[in-house]
Amino acid sequence: MKSKLGSNSWRWTDTIQEQFYCHIAGLPASLPQYNLESWRPLVNWAQSLVQYRCNPYDGAWS
């Protein structure tokens, strides 16, 4: 992914990576929202799927 982003590769953070894994592994449970947001906290994708449906924020469902 980083090679495809070129000069914007710095935007692909660990948080974005974990959200990506979560949404891919969690289909269809990760729906209806499939989003990647750098402001979300870093949470392991498996934990994020179970607790937050891939959208962690302040320890609550988002």
Score class of each variant (00 low, 15 high):
Ser30Lys: 06
Thr13Asn: 08
Val50Met: 05
Trp12Cys: 15
Lys4His: 12
Pro56Cys: 02
Leu49Ser: 07
Thr13Cys: 02
His23Arg: 12
Ser38Phe: 08
Cys22Arg: 09
Gly6Thr: 10
Trp10Asp: 09
Lys4Gln: 13
Tyr52Arg: 01
Tyr34Ile: 13
Thr13Trp: 03
Pro32His: 00
Gln47Thr: 15
Thr13Met: 02
Ser3Leu: 12
Ile16Trp: 03
His23Ala: 08
Val43Asp: 06
Ala60Ile: 10
Ile16Glu: 06
Gln47Arg: 12
Ser30Gln: 05
Leu31Ser: 04
Leu42Gly: 00
Gln51Asp: 13
Pro56Thr: 02
Asn8Phe: 09
Trp10Phe: 10
Met1Ser: 11
Ser9Ile: 00
Ile24Val: 15
Trp12His: 04
Ser3Gly: 08
Phe20Tyr: 04
Tyr21Asp: 13
Gln33Pro: 00
Pro28Val: 12
Ile24Gln: 13
Arg40Cys: 03
Gln19Tyr: 09
Val50Leu: 09
Lys4Ala: 14
Ser3Cys: 12
Ala25His: 11
Arg40Asp: 01
Gln33Lys: 08
Asn8Lys: 13
Tyr34Gly: 01
Thr15Ala: 15
Leu36Gln: 08
Trp61Gly: 01
Met1Asp: 11
Leu5Gly: 01
Gln47Trp: 06
Asp14Ser: 15
Trp61Gln: 03
Phe20Met: 04
Glu18Thr: 14
